[in-house]
Design a protein around this nucleic acid. Structure first.
Lengths: 216, 216
DNA sequence: GCATTACAGTGACTCATGTCACAGAGAAGG
DNA sequence: CCTTCTCTGTGACATGAGTCACTGTAATGC
């Protein structure tokens, strides 16, 4: 357990009121997670709200057979709505959060979070806003799965990735396939096509994105 | 505009505090919608929160080409979280709510709803609970699309339908196909298979559900 | 009662994805 | 330098789902 730098939190979460920050500082814990490490799993341990201070998390679904798909990324300054959401986790699949980069997260015990809802207007707004944003993102994901072919989903996926991590996409085809719940060979082929349109350039273990609008 | 029967609302929304009900009664409007009528469309008109008093609504997504798929059903006593959620509706697709049966909805202007969040603890809880529940249901839908084949999705769909409307499913194959974003012929075949397992019996314009667990 | 319409069933075909089986090319480690 | 592993590329094939064309059959309307 470390000292939380108030200024940093304030910078990342500018909408939270001062008094709340003080409580946050005194009552929550900071945790550093390494790239690849699992941050949470729905319904595991004591539920706490997770605030992301630095780094990058991905939130994804995993079913009983090990299939997974990406729900969305979480960037610093945002909260993992799940921890508040998932009262009853659904039958067979779980929601997982994993660090994509080394990250720092703040863990807020649920009772506290619950209490703050009534006590601090800014916390309340923050939570509501989080719900909204996640809901929207989830809808987008849903859309892309329901209506689009894998080719478009791949472009959508790359766009999101570029947005959070820049144009050097350091992923193997296998990893991408996993997150789209597809298979490597198929992704390889689609990526090849994208390369032919000039949208991207393929390298070993990373992809250079030029202009994804060419890939449609 | 009619008089809202307080007792009825109280019965359907037992968790809302008394004082809130009074404000609700005096400041919101009751609207009756007929089966098949559109209740809302994301981003249309003034946004208001919708409380369902009686009947049944379905909430679904529709993309620019007229494809649609069902998100979830709303039963009396629940709120349409969307109206609060969808600040920025996403590019090309819209969320729609349509009455499956004749229904009565209460329209709460957004400013009011917003204000109540701070003023009434019970409203606040109600809203949070709604968010949670919708989120969960959306996740379930997402799951079924992402991981399951159309056969399982059909079973999942029928189950939901039975839950809200009973074992006499009065739908044509075409309607089902639409809500699953599939095509009639395919649904016909799958239904046929289900009939062969004894899970259902097919009739013209309606399906009799016996035991969907046979259909897996 | 006859014509029309909506719904349901079926076979043939296409297309997108997924799977299997390999092969080559870099990386990594000794 | 040689071995081994991981990542990538590709062809052949299987499967699920969508589409087309057509038939039959119950409901509806005049």
């Amino acid at each position: 357990m470390e000292v939380l730098p108030k200024e940093l939190i304030q910078k990342k979460f500018p909408d939270l009121e001062d008094q709340l920050l003080d409580e946050l500082l005194s009552q929550s814990t900071l945790r550093e997670v390494e790239e690849g490490e699992e941050v949470m799993r729905s319904g595991q341990y004591i539920k706490s709200t997770i605030l992301l201070l630095s780094g990058l998390l991905k939130v994804y679904r995993e079913d009983d057979e090990g299939n997974e798909f990406l729900m969305y990324y979480l960037e610093p300054g945002s909260a993992c709505a799940l921890s508040m959401m998932c009262t009853a986790r659904t039958e067979k699949s779980e929601i997982m959060a994993k660090a994509v980069k080394d990250s720092e997260v703040i863990l807020v015990p649920s009772e506290l979070s619950e209490m703050w809802l009534g006590k601090f207007k800014s916390w309340h707004n923050f939570v509501i806003a989080s719900y909204r944003q996640r809901f929207e993102e989830l809808l987008q994901t849903l859309d892309s799965i329901a209506f689009k072919g894998l080719d478009e989903r791949l472009v959508f996926y790359l766009k999101r990735h570029v947005k959070v991590s820049g144009k050097q996409v350091k992923l193997s085809h296998q990893q991408i396939a996993d997150e789209l719940n597809s298979s490597r060979e198929v992704i390889s082929r689609l990526l090849k096509k994208l390369e032919q349109t000039g949208a991207i350039t393929l390298h070993r273990n990373y992809i250079e994105v030029h202009d994804l609008s060419l890939g449609v």
